[in-house]
Amino acid sequence: MSNQIAVAFYRTLSDPEKIKELGFTLNILGASYNDQGTTCNLKVSASDSGLVEVTDEQMKWNIADCGLILNIHIDLKSPSSIYGPRGIASSGSKVGLALTVSSLSSNRQECISVTEIEKQDSSTSLNHTVSICPGLYLRDFNLQAVLYLISSSSDEVGFASIPGTVLGTLDKKYINAPFTDLPFPIYKVDEPNGPLWWTECRWTDASEDLFTEENVCIRINRLNKYYDMVNIDNKNFSKPLISEIISAAVQLMLDRAMQNEGEWNKIITEPNLPEGTVAAVLRNMYDTFQWDFSSEEKLARSIREFIYTEVEKW
């Protein structure tokens, strides 16, 4: 395994405080798709972690067959701070905002320029539409807002000079369009005589295998007599039960990863894990949710405290 360190000889937007100072926000206003000339709205659920779930309450849409239209709103409160001695671009240069759409599961990525950020603006606010054509994306993608250099002036040192240089990522969303109606890797099966649920962890290399059904998922058995209690559309749906199932399943996934000390160490320390992989998702859990990994008992408790709170919001 090679260790890589990226060294930039120009200023980039890496300091979280600087990103905060810029006052950038990207909000998903809504999602829809086009069905033979008619715009059909989809349900969007966004969390603070950057996960955005898009689902269709009519159960007719999927991103592969129908595509997706995302309406987003962008605010940049302090664009002028990008430029000059305290900024990331020289005073004489031009900086733009772009969106990258990338998906490992769909084997593609593309980049769209959105707007130039004028240095004299006191703030920038705009709406933008991200259109995903049918047939291209399988189920999920990453949406990143980046600043990039449009053109530079050559008189100031310490700044990027090559047009197209990405100066930093302002925000990142993971857009998930699952076929299920629950925002976790939960897939339904029909297994006579089977238990209500179980977890499958089939990845062989967490840093390569994607966090998709074939490698990791929770199975809910529709033929089990207690299925109504985990069916969100049923009047007997039980939030405590589904919370317990998800908590136990997540802990099983983490236990599986922690069995291999080398792999677990890589998951929690490697700086650039490939997006969408099992390793990246587990790392996100490790970094974002403040779970207590100091012992199995504390981990079990902290996972449940989090999951029960999240499910309560459904």
């Binding site: 772009a98 593309e110 980049c111 320029s113 980046v146 090559i162 047009p163 197209g164 240089t165």
Partner: peptide, 11 residues
């Protein structure tokens, strides 16, 4: 591509 995005380049 780690630093310069070809699709955003002037080239």
């Amino acid at each position: 591509c780690a630093t310069v995005e070809p699709q955003l380049s002037s080239e």
